[in-house]
């Protein structure tokens, strides 16, 4: 249950961005959540609702996209989806994999008025 602290950090960023853009109303916020991040989207939604209720952000929609795990092989250079958390290249069996997607925990877009 670290979703509370994550939502707190999220709200800090949202409020800062809204001040920057002189926005009064938050319609929606879009997040990228990597498959490997230890986040439960339902808990995040729940915390977001609780922590925004009664504030100027109440009613905003939280949109989450789950980003699948992808790796790049340092030996053969190919990119692929990492299935079942197996960090091994499906082409050349190398264990030297760079994770190129799937560890995100980012805010990507907000719709404001």
């Amino acid at each position: 249950m670290h979703e509370m602290s994550i939502v707190q950090s999220l709200l800090d960023i949202i409020q800062e961005e809204m001040r920057k853009h002189n926005a009064k109303l938050l319609r929606s916020v879009r997040l990228d959540i990597g498959q490997l991040s230890a986040i439960v989207p339902e808990s995040l939604s729940f915390c977001f609702e609780v922590m925004t209720s009664g504030t100027e952000l109440e009613g905003a929609e939280l949109i989450m996209e789950i980003i699948p795990l992808r790796g790049a092989c340092r030996d053969c250079g190919r990119e692929f989806e990492i299935k079942e958390y197996a960090f091994e290249c499906p082409h050349c069996s190398s264990p030297h994999i760079d994770t190129i997607a799937g560890q995100e925990l980012s805010i990507v877009e907000m719709e404001v008025d």
């Binding site: 994550i6 950090s9 999220l10 800090d12 960023i13 961005e17 853009h21 926005a23 997040l31 925990l105 980012s106 805010i107 990507v108 877009e109 907000m110 719709e111 404001v112 008025d113």
Partner: peptide, 14 residues
């Protein structure tokens, strides 16, 4: 108005 942000949510902690 759509605002593109692209920020790591945990950047303050990082």
């Amino acid at each position: 108005m759509k605002v593109s942000v692209v920020k790591n949510i945990l950047e303050a902690n990082d």
